[in-house]
C-alpha cells in the first residue's frame, strides 16, 4: 500500500519519514553536547556591521527581483534571447504555432 514500484526501483514514503526522524533525533542528540552560552537581550544578539549603525529591517529586506541576481546576470545571454522570444505580441503567438506546424509537417513529410 505504501510502496511504489517503478520496475527499476521503489519508493516508500513511510521509510523516508522514518529515516528523517532518525536523522533528526541524531542531530538533536549531537546538539545536546554543545555549550549553551546564549543570553537573550545582550550584545550577543545584535548584528555586527563593522561598527556601522544597523539599518531598519524594512531597508534591509531584499526584494524579490533582486534575489538570484548572480544567476540571472551570469545567464544574461540566455535571458536576452528568451525575453526577445516572449514579445507579448498576439501575432507572434500564432507565428510560433505556424512554425512548429511547418517543422513537424516537414519532419513527418520526409519520413
Amino acid at each position: 500500500m505504501f510502496t511504489l514500484e517503478s520496475g527499476s526501483g521503489f519508493w516508500n514514503p513511510i521509510l523516508w519519514i522514518l529515516v528523517l526522524l532518525i536523522t533528526f533525533l541524531l542531530f538533536y542528540g549531537i546538539r545536546g553536547f554543545g555549550k549553551s552560552t546564549y543570553k537573550k537581550g545582550t550584545e550577543q544578539t545584535k548584528a555586527f556591521l563593522s561598527g556601522n549603525k544597523e539599518p531598519s529591517p524594512e531597508e534591509m529586506h531584499i526584494k524579490a527581483s533582486n534575489l538570484y541576481w548572480g544567476f540571472t546576470t551570469s545567464m544574461k545571454s540566455l535571458y536576452s534571447v528568451l525575453r526577445k522570444m516572449h514579445t507579448g505580441n498576439t501575432s507572434d503567438y500564432i507565428l510560433w504555432f505556424v512554425l512548429v506546424l511547418a517543422v513537424l509537417l516537414l519532419i513527418l513529410g520526409v519520413m
Binding site: 525575453r83 516572449h86 514579445t87 507579448g88 505580441n89 498576439t90 501575432s91
Partner: peptide
C-alpha cells in the same frame, strides 16, 4: 495596433 497591445510580455 497589435504591437502596442503588449503590456503582458516576458
Amino acid at each position: 495596433d497589435v504591437r502596442k497591445i503588449r503590456r503582458l510580455k516576458e
